[in-house]
Design a protein around this nucleic acid. Structure first.
Lengths: 241, 241
DNA sequence: GCCCTATATTTGGTCCGACCAATTTGGTCG
DNA sequence: CGACCAAATTGGTCGGACCAAATATAGGGC
């Protein structure tokens, strides 16, 4: 499926997925570099580069004498994407957890951004919300505007920690959902309510209100996404028959 | 200070810090592997392994023809630790952002854990809180208990996304604060209030209440930590004179 | 003089073979 | 049965070599 251009990356992906599929017990010895080189018909150097990546992901720990597999949930955040991508359909539980987490981070960002925004930035936000409202008829076309709005919020809030987390999460999640063609079907009314709340919170410079609106929105997104995945699942089941 | 045992890791750390210190502009060409090998007096293989790690961190992007530096705030979450460790004293702004972020995640975990806990788990939590209260006289000695409590909450909430993020953050932050001897001076009364709130929320199985208590606690932790760092800073300034 | 193209150079990606040091393993001895 | 020692295994590093892609450079056309 996802074959990088370089051999070392392919090896890394392959081994990473094996570990994520729990084909090794935590603490178990990992095959030696020479064995892996033979198995993948590659040089030891390429294998070493792959293992170096796995180590960075927190999936293995190498030492002279042998590498050992580590527990998945002690790994780095960067394994989330691959973890969701293991099967042809993303794990719904994981997706839901992702949205829940992303929701609280987005709410935090909105709260801080609006509370910290100066007059100029408030005007900018207001304009962005107007643009959002204009395009709210087309849920697909709204995406870029929504992204722009969130980006601006993130820029004003200026919280690097949240930003890095969101980057990681987004890169591993949003794009993948797009690629799979899983699109949550949000009700027009709920979007309208969200936009309205945002507008009010900006006008009143009420970060708390924006935070609550954001939380509510992601709550609805979670149920919608759950349904969307369920739908996709039945589609696939049909095709299999 | 932080010299790994292997050469490739040392090179990686060195280059990572250079990038984090913004010694390269985003998009700028990175020195060639051969040049780096000469500079560090190492083999090209060792350099390549180091670059492989930097790429995993999202700090550079390699391509035939040359590697390029990427913007720091498009990097992976794993750069946070090194970023805070660049100077002898951690960046207070970053520390504050960290605590704020960790706070909302902890609050989310507490809410979900308590809402999802079964009878047995509630009893377990109750016992842990009692143990916390018993040791609340000694703020230092309380740490392990607090960790245990949070671990248990995390286990019950069972949200892998939050867990992975928290792992990353904790590994890069908590231990470092410990190492630097920066200990926030929380008031006994506020700890008492936290424990009391937690106890009530467990008894009433009220996740929302636990969430609020957690948020309030991290809020106090933020101010305390800010003071602690300020104190440390003046200490260092004294020593310099 | 400027722009575009073709060539030469640089650079990353991979391979091979080799050596060292630390760990692991297996057997031997007490 | 346990402690201890030697051999095999394994990761870490080095050097040199070749290829393909990307870049830089020189040349020709306008």
């Amino acid at each position: 499926m996802s074959s990088s251009n370089t051999i070392s990356h392919e090896i890394a992906e392959s081994l990473r997925d094996e570990i994520l599929r729990l084909q090794y017990r935590s603490g178990e010895r990992f095959p030696s570099e020479r064995d892996l080189a033979a198995r993948f018909d590659a040089s030891r150097g390429a294998v070493r580069e792959a293992l170096s990546q796995l180590e960075q992901l927190g999936l293995i720990r190498t030492q002279p004498g042998g590498a050992r597999v580590q527990s998945v949930d002690s790994a780095s955040l960067a394994v989330l994407g691959p973890l969701m991508q293991l099967n042809d359909l993303p794990n719904p539980v994981l997706v839901d957890q992702f949205l829940e987490t992303f929701g609280v981070l987005a709410a935090l960002t909105a709260k801080n951004a609006i509370n910290a925004a100066n007059a100029e930035q408030l005007i900018q936000l207001k304009q962005l919300v107007v643009k959002l409202a204009d395009e709210s008829v087309d849920l697909e076309g709204m995406q870029p505007r929504w992204r722009e709005f969130m980006e601006t919020l993130s820029g004003i809030a200026d919280n690097l920690v949240v930003r890095l987390i969101s980057n990681d999460l987004k890169a591993q999640f949003v794009d993948q959902m797009m690629r799979l063609g899983i699109r949550p079907d949000l009700k027009k009314s709920s979007i309208k309510r969200l936009i309205s709340s945002l507008r009010v919170s900006i006008n009143k410079k009420d970060g708390e209100l924006a935070s609550e609106a954001m939380l509510a929105h992601f709550e609805e997104l979670r149920t919608a996404m759950s349904e969307a995945i369920g739908l996709k699942a039945s589609e696939i089941r049909q095709m299999a028959v």
